[in-house]
Computed example of a mutant assay.
Amino acid sequence: MDDVVATLSDAECWQLLAGEELGRLVTRVGDVLDIFPVNYVIDRESVVFRTAEGSKLVELTVNDEVLFEVDHYTETMAWSVIVRGRAHRLASEEEVEAADELPLRPWLPTLKYQYVRVRAESMSGRRFRRGPEPDRYGIADY
């Protein structure tokens, strides 16, 4: 089993996150969980994305604790990284100007004026070796 599932270091997690563009933001307000696909960039070991006014920003104002998940797979391997952290809207002119310099462009042809940064409080990642399922029952004894 050791060669099938491997735990990733934080450095490996950041490296994998930096190589992707699409992740999932999970928010929670009371008993309600929501998940939003967002395109993002990594900046100084944090996740930055742009959004329009709406439910994401409202939910982050009520509860800034979030999960951010990214995964990837090929025929032979897969990986998943989960960032647990706090999200905040970039509000100061300095923060917004710095974010404007990041290589972050909306995927959809819509205006997105708000930047959000997720600062990691912890993270976990795993890499998986893919392959056929082993024989579940073994060889029958006759």
Rank of each mutant, 00 (worst) to 15 (best):
L16S: 02
G54P: 00
D2P: 07
H88Q: 14
P109G: 03
R126C: 07
R44M: 10
E95S: 03
V70W: 05
I139M: 10
E101H: 14
S55A: 14
V58H: 07
G138V: 01
I82R: 02
G125H: 09
I82Y: 03
L104Y: 02
Y113L: 13
R130H: 04
D31N: 12
S46Q: 14
R89E: 13
R89Q: 13
L90Q: 09
D31C: 05
R117V: 07
H72S: 15
G125I: 04
L57S: 12
L57F: 10
S80L: 03
Y40C: 03
E121L: 15
W79C: 08
T51H: 01
I139N: 11
A91L: 05
V5M: 15
T51C: 08
R117L: 07
Y113F: 10
A140Q: 11
I139Y: 09
V58Y: 09
P103S: 05
L90I: 06
V58I: 09
S92K: 05
I35P: 00
V48T: 12
R44G: 07
R86H: 12
F68K: 04
I35M: 11
E21L: 08
D100C: 01
V29R: 02
I42V: 15
R24V: 13
G85Y: 01
P109D: 05
V118C: 05
A87E: 03
L8C: 06
V66T: 14
F49G: 03
R129I: 03
E121S: 13
L111E: 14
T27E: 08
R117I: 11
P103Y: 01
M1T: 06
Y73R: 11
M77P: 01
Y137E: 12
P132R: 05
V58C: 05
W14L: 03
T51E: 00
R119I: 09
P106L: 00
A87F: 08
G30N: 13
E65K: 14
T7E: 14
V32A: 13
V81M: 02
L108F: 11
A52W: 02
F128A: 05
I42P: 10
D64R: 15
R105E: 14
R130G: 02
D141Q: 14
K56S: 03
D100A: 02
V29F: 02
V41R: 04
V41P: 02
N63I: 04
E65M: 08
V83S: 04
D71Y: 04
G131M: 11
C13M: 01
E59A: 11
W107I: 07
E65P: 00
E69F: 08
D100H: 13
R50S: 12
G138E: 00
A120S: 08
A98S: 13
E93W: 03
Y115C: 04
L57V: 10
H72C: 05
D10Y: 11
R127F: 01
Y142W: 13
V26I: 13
N63D: 11
D34C: 11
R84K: 14
C13Y: 01
A99D: 04
V62D: 04
W14A: 09
G54C: 08
A87V: 04
A18C: 04
G54Y: 06
